[in-house]
């Protein structure tokens, strides 16, 4: 079944220049393998579409059951150059949590 990522993870995002990074953290450690399988750099890049012009790199933090996505050219120049309301990517974490992922009932039911 398809569920929004927000059912399995929480997130925080921030900036460094024109780079936005989104940390995605499993709500339960058991969800982490699902995140690793479903939330790939390619899918994150496609999800953000025109908001992120550069490459998306994924890093894994299995000890925190977390993934870190580093998204380049993601803030219209970043910081003071950007004309966006969200020039620091503060809401990118929430935006990523709307990603639809495919999970089995068993995977979601772990509790």
């Amino acid at each position: 079944m398809k569920i929004p990522l927000s059912q399995m993870a929480h997130a925080r995002s921030g900036d460094k220049g024109d780079i936005s990074n989104v940390g995605v953290i499993a709500l339960l450690p058991e969800y982490y393998p699902v995140l690793v399988r479903e939330v790939t750099a390619e899918r994150v890049k496609a999800h953000f579409g025109p908001l992120v012009k550069g490459t998306v790199t994924r890093y894994e933090l299995p000890n925190l059951a977390a993934l870190n996505f580093v998204m380049e050219q993601a803030l219209d120049g970043g910081g003071t150059i950007s004309l966006r309301t969200d020039a620091q990517g503060k809401t990118h974490g929430a935006a990523l949590l709307t990603l639809e992922i495919e999970v089995s009932a068993d995977e979601l039911a772990i509790d």
């Binding site: 929480h10 925080r12 921030g14 460094k16 990074n21 940390g23 933090l61 977390a66 870190n68 580093v70």
Partner: peptide
Amino acid sequence: LATVKEQLVYEIGDPR
């Protein structure tokens, strides 16, 4: 754990 983890991944690049 959740509040600390969110801050750990805040504004980082390669976590290693």
